[in-house]
Each structure stands twice: as C-alpha cells, then as structure tokens.
Design a protein around this nucleic acid. Structure first.
Lengths: 238, 238
DNA sequence: TTATTCATGACAGAAGTTGTCAGTCATTGT
DNA sequence: ACAATGACTGACAACTTCTGTCATGAATAA
C-alpha cells in the first residue's frame, strides 16, 4: 500500500540528514518521479521537507515535523515474531534477549481476537537448528516462493509447484501447506502431498514455479507438526 | 485521498461510542458500502472494530486498540531491528519482508530524539554474510558475553576479556567496543585494542570471562566500521 | 414474522498511481 | 560562461485501486 511507502520514506528521512531523491527511489524500489510526488504529499500532510538543488544538494526533513500515529497490522506482527525467532535460533546473539521483551509488549497490547489469530499462525511454525554446512552450496530459492507461500500458508490455499528431489527427478506437486519449518538459512514447507496422499517436507530451494491454487484446505490438527518437531529438534515459535 | 477519510473515520469512531454505518456514510459523504469496506481496512490495520447487527446495533471502536508502539523502550527497538536484520541476512525467508513494514511503522512513531539515538546505535552495527561452514564446529560463546557486551557497547565502557587466538595463545585484552559485526550464527566485536593500539576484530567464541571496566571511551567516527564493511561484504543494519 | 443493521460478492465505471519522457530552474565547480 | 548535478513540473498511457449499485445472506430485536 502507498501509506506503507510513506512510513518507510519518513523513516529514511529521519534516519539521515540528507538524501538524494534518486537514492530514496532505489531504496524504496520506485521511480524518482514517484519519490518527488511522495515528498509533495508529505508536504501536504504538514511535514517540512526542504530541498536543495545542484551538486551536494538533497532532500531534508525538519526534525520538528509532525508525528505519525500508526498501527501494527496482523501480518506485521507475524513477521516480527518470526524474524525474532529465527535470530534467536542462533546462540548468544547480543541484544537478542531484549527482542523478547519487545515482542511481549507488542503482544500484550494486541486485542484478544487478533492475539488468538496470531497464535494460530504461530502454532504452525517450527524453528529447527540451523541447517548443516553442506546446505550452503545448494541452489537459490525462487524469489517468488516466499510471497506465494505466505499467502497460501496463511489463507489455507493449495500450493502447486515443481519439485526436484535428490536424484534430480523433477515432478509436479499439489500440496496443502500446513506448516513452516525454519532451519536457518534454509526453510521447508511442511505439507500434505495430495498426489502421494502422505505427509512431506519440501525444501525451499528445490521448489520451482510455485503458484496458488483456487482450492482451500482444512487446517489439520497439529499431528503433522508434532511428528516433525522431534525429528528436526525443532520447537514452536513461542 | 483515502487515508484522510480513514483518519476522519477514526476520529468519528473515537468521538462517540456507537455509530450506524449509514450515519458514518452520511458524515463522510460516501456510500454505506464504502464505510463497511473502510471498517474492514481498519480491522486489517489492527484496530478492533466491533459491530452488532439488528436494531439498536452499530459499530464500535475498542479504545484499547489505539497505540501499540509508544511503550517500547530504546533497547527494545534495537533488539527488534537487529533480529530482523539477522533474519533477513538469509535468503528469501517467508514473512521476512513484512518485518520491514513493521519496523518502519514502529520507528515512524518514535519520538525524534529517540529515533536519532537509535540511529546512532544502528550505525555501529554491521550485518555480514552468514559465516562459513567450518565455523559451526567452533567453541560455544560465553553465555555472559552477550549481556556484558550489550552494556559496554551501548554505554561506551571499556571491555576487558581473555582472548585465545588461532594459535591457542591466551592473552588478556582491554578494548573499546566500537561496533558489532554479525555473521550469523557468529558475531564479532569491532574494537580498538588499547594494548596493541590498533583496530581489531574479536570473534565472540574466542572471548572468555568478559567484564566491564569503569573507564569510558569516545565513540570514534565511523572510520573503523568503514574499513571493515567491504572486507566482510557487510552492510549497515538499515 | 418483520424490520433493522451489519456483512460480502460481483461488476462496471470512476478515480488514483506509476513510469517514462521532455523540459525548467537552481546550485556548484571549472 | 559553461557543464554537470539534482530538485521540480507537466503530460500521457498503462495499470491498479476504489467506489457505487445491486443482490443476497446472516444476526438481532420487537
């Protein structure tokens, strides 16, 4: 959404005194024109954005400018919790323990219904030990996959994709993405394979051309996940 | 713009306990359908909007769902930002991109002074590529270290510790912890070694019995960090 | 039951957003 | 004076999103 970009833009402007419009454009992955338009909208909203032309010039936000009141959306909280969980799957990172406090505060202030909903999602996510050394050399993960998985996972849609196994056989799959197993830096889809009619783990970097199917699935009770947890010496997020 | 109407709508909802969708529609000069859509959008954004059907029913905004972010302390935010940065140093994690939006919202609603202070800390943290495979087998990191480092780092105290290098020589060090380099799951103290009078990287798992000294140090301009960044193919947190 | 009120889906038309391109104006260094 | 840089603006087509209308359902109160 556009509002998100404005928040992001404000954050950048506050984080450093001077920016060139082009830099901002690169950061936010939009054209320079759009940035200039956004800056005007911020001005309309009452922020004091000054700018200097020419070499050494740039855009600058007056620190005194107004404050924004924003809200964390449901997805935002999921993303935060997951990120923190991943970071903490590594031992003894500085500042990592503080993140729990932060999350606790955030969760505490969530309305009940939303907290419940969040909990349901979290119950489907497992954090395992960081993956083994050899995994480092394996193939890249399809940039599309993350996004496609996100929606299929959280909206309970069937997921179609191509999969190549250890032997290099490429097959076409349709699966119900019930869970997510993270073994940094790799991750797996915990799924029910509707072709083979059995539970399966699909490794992210072996998935190609993922797409969401129209059909939805019924979230199974946690049998699937319970089976996997001890195997991968994994634990639920919270 | 639509965001303006949302603000107006929130103002109305806050100004009176109960509204009928149609009333709101009249006030804002849009159709009832649009109001209902707007209410859903507010719900997506994390506001608790309850509604009752039937005569005497109406729409109601839970007062509790107003501000989430204001209670987060500075350290909390540092922890969050760092965790997200670490999580994102891994490729194509699902939900990871959403975390940026969340952080943007949090930072946007931080008071300026605090935002500035946060930025200063962030400028001293580098995220590098995940560390190499062989590192996995190395020794554990002293459980105390994370906490000790946190305070020394953020309060600019000298750090004393024992260090054993590759050859196994164990030496006693006193250093100024200017920066933090994360190469998950390992991390390094970017420091000025006051014994040798030179810039050094200290690997976390080689540090033993760390302790904070009374003396403080002056945070150097970012020369130190700049030198290291390209070496470790690292980037600043934000 | 009936009237009221929120809720959702579909669809066409209205409105807004974006990138590209062409060009202006201000500033800096040579 | 001139070239280079970089903020700004306008116009337009492609695209996306929003809006109103209509139909329908579901919950609630009298």
């Amino acid at each position: 959404m556009m509002a998100d970009r404005h928040d992001e833009l404000l954050r950048l402007l506050r984080s450093r005194a001077d920016w060139r419009a082009e830099e901002l454009a690169e950061r936010l992955e939009v054209s320079t024109r759009t940035i200039l338009r956004d800056l005007n909208r911020l001005r309309d909203r009452g922020f004091e954005v000054s700018a200097m032309s020419g070499p050494g010039g740039g855009v600058h936000l007056e620190p005194s400018s107004v404050m924004v009141t924003s809200q964390l959306a449901g997805d935002d909280v999921v993303a935060l919790v997951l990120s923190v969980a991943i970071a903490q799957s590594m031992p003894w990172m500085p500042f990592a323990s503080g993140a729990n406090d932060a999350l606790a505060k955030i969760e505490a202030s969530l309305p009940f219904g939303r907290a419940r909903q969040l909990q349901d999602l979290m119950m489907r996510i497992l954090i395992g030990k960081p993956s083994s050394a050899s995994m480092r050399r394996e193939g890249r993960i399809d940039p599309l996959l993350a996004r496609v998985f996100e929606t299929a996972f959280s909206q309970q849609h069937l997921l179609g994709f191509g999969y190549h196994d250890r032997q290099g056989n490429r097959t076409q799959r349709v699966a119900e993405p019930h869970g997510l197993l993270v073994r940094a830096p790799m991750w797996y889809v915990i799924a029910w394979d509707t072709n083979a009619d059995e539970q399966r783990l699909f490794r992210a970097d072996r998935i190609s051309s993922p797409h969401i199917l129209a059909d939805q699935f019924v979230p199974r009770p946690h049998e699937l996940l319970r089976d996997i947890a001890p195997d991968a010496s994994a634990h639920f997020v919270r």
